[in-house]
């Protein structure tokens, strides 16, 4: 048995997702600081987006959106509490195994993965309201990723209905921009 980097994850706050009330979003604290493992996680997680300055690392686990900070995490679109705790187990194993094998992994300090336009479009309200000045939400997504639009111009995103999506998008943009 190797020495654990991360011993425990505990939920500190939980509420139903606003857009999908059958799912939950939550915040949790981690018992140990995982900053040092982040570049290695960035190397092993296929869809990770890493910002070494923040620092934070964000990725999806199937449909769930996960953001890891040094001593806390957020998760959205979690099925229920059992699902959350099962994902915690998976995450603890991933973090500890990655840390244990770090000598065999080349750490990656780059923002390795940038979301694709369709992926980013998927997080938007998709109302095609044109209030941002673009022809549709897809075009808006493309402009955002090119740095030619500001997320604040998406008016529906800043209504309470899209609070979950807003949080995810803000975190992703913090990581990649």
């Amino acid at each position: 048995m190797f020495a654990l980097l991360l011993n425990d994850i505990n939920i500190t706050f939980m509420e139903p997702c606003i857009a999908e009330p059958e799912k939950i979003r939550l915040k949790a604290e981690m018992s140990d600081d995982i900053t040092d493992v982040m570049p290695y996680l960035n190397a092993v997680i296929g869809n990770a987006i890493f910002n070494k300055n923040a620092p934070l690392i964000t990725f999806t686990k199937e449909f769930r959106l996960i953001v890891l900070y040094p001593k806390k995490l957020t998760m959205a679109k979690v099925v229920n509490q059992t699902d959350a705790l099962q994902i915690f187990d998976w995450l603890k194993d991933l973090i500890n195994e990655t840390w244990d094998k770090r000598d065999t992994i080349t750490p990656n300090y780059e923002k390795k993965h940038k979301p694709t336009v369709p992926q980013f479009y998927g997080w938007l309200p998709k109302t095609n309201c044109k209030e941002c000045g673009e022809a549709n939400c897809f075009a808006f997504a493309a402009k955002i990723l090119q740095g030619q639009q500001r997320i604040e111009n998406c008016k529906p995103l800043f209504t309470p209905e899209y609070a979950d999506a807003r949080e995810t998008i803000t975190e992703v943009l913090t990581a990649i921009m």
């Binding site: 939980m14 509420e15 139903p16 009330p21 059958e22 939950i24 099925v79 229920n80 509490q81 059992t82 699902d83």
Partner: peptide, 16 residues
Amino acid sequence: TGGDSILEHQPDSLPD
């Protein structure tokens, strides 16, 4: 079942 009180029907997800 706890957190998903808004739903009028039993949730589909397990174990809830």
